[in-house]
Nucleic acid binder design. Sequence first.
DNA 1: CGCTCTCTTGATAGACTTCAATGTTAGTGG
DNA 2: CCACTAACATTGAAGTCTATCAAGAGAGCG
Lengths: 236, 236
Amino acid sequence: MLVRKLGSIARLSDEERRAVMRLPMTIRPLPGGHDVVCEHDCPMQCCLILDGWASRYQLLAEGRRQIFSFHIPGDIPDLQSLHLRVMDHSLCALTPVTLAFIPHEAIRDLTTGYPGIAATLWRDTLVDGAIFREWMVGMGRRSAYQAVAHLFCEIYVKLEAVGLAENHRYKLPITQVDIADALGLSNVHVNRVLRQLREENLVVLRNGWLNILNWPELAKISEFDPLYLHVDRLTA
Amino acid sequence: MLVRKLGSIARLSDEERRAVMRLPMTIRPLPGGHDVVCEHDCPMQCCLILDGWASRYQLLAEGRRQIFSFHIPGDIPDLQSLHLRVMDHSLCALTPVTLAFIPHEAIRDLTTGYPGIAATLWRDTLVDGAIFREWMVGMGRRSAYQAVAHLFCEIYVKLEAVGLAENHRYKLPITQVDIADALGLSNVHVNRVLRQLREENLVVLRNGWLNILNWPELAKISEFDPLYLHVDRLTA
DNA sequence: CGCTCTCTTGATAGACTTCAATGTTAGTGG
DNA sequence: CCACTAACATTGAAGTCTATCAAGAGAGCG
């Protein structure tokens, strides 16, 4: 899985591929809703998502919550702990997940020995940052309607890039509250936006499945430009 | 300058220090308001800010703008171009700036030869991302009042960390429009929030100088916790 | 079957925006 | 030294988007 992920970002030499394969991993399932790491933790390992969804978030006073990102299989959502000792946010499983834990030390040895792999992982954190910026645009300068549409576009492109979605349709195992906390909205308003999107025959979200009925229009109204996802590396 | 910056993040060995000193640089001044790199550019160099302020931003339809970050001397605001070919946002000088341009190739050679330096720069992009996340919290889950206060706290800590501010007072060479575009607000509302902060004897912004009159209270109302800036490395 | 979680909808309220006008400051040139 | 300009800051009034509160409807689960 990791080889596949890294290979999708940059070409790996055979030697690099073997080195990645040698990484020690502890595979462990975790039930949905459970935290993987919490704010203020100082983890000694990173995790690779083999199956399921996760999200990074932070809790604030009065029950407020901000979700920073959604993660899908192939992601390493806590790669930052490799170089930042203390977690400044938490990571939780949105669904039951299967995680492969890799000790920091092993990753550090790998990146020291193979600068190309270091660059590839580094690039991953840069894309991570690019997605944060795009979410900032959504919260700061887009309407709730556009923001929700944009999120659905983004998730589709990410899922499709790793072969987990096609035909503008995908499993979206998150609640409306999650969407609200990701976009800085209230759950009530998310519900209304979803209804509007449904009534306009753009998107239908039902029973955990998202169906994009009119992709061109959805991308247009949300001003979606996938450039920031930088999935173009190999095709460019 | 670069040595100082990197040294403030992690200890450099003498050899690493010498390698950094050998980096080829082209120093060039730029007038305020000018773009350094634009969205869709494919730069072949990064720039280190020697003097002045810069900001990263994106323009949207109907004159909307989202500012992603403010940068001060010592920052390398376009480090992402090292690994992401196409710029997904722009970088402009907020004030007249002095920039040191370093070719990508030189940085790549450096990071390949010195994994410790690679890790240090990588860490820098991780902190960059952490700041984005905190801004997301501000736009998504904090009131305008809190968000403005939080921004002032953040900038102070960043400036103080590089010795450019003390006594809870600093030069803030940005307009209210800039603040609005950074926080996803209107300039009118920023003005009102500033008035409120002034009337409550918390912060005064006048003639480009920011004066924090009551730091503890300001940090408290904005829920400011500097953990996410990760300036603790050497002291921890 | 009852419990809990999530979704849905209406009514009301508040935060923030937009529009528009005026005041202020700094810089420029006569 | 003063008029003139341009950019930035300030204020009021009106409007809109989104939040909050509240209540009911489904859906999944032991």
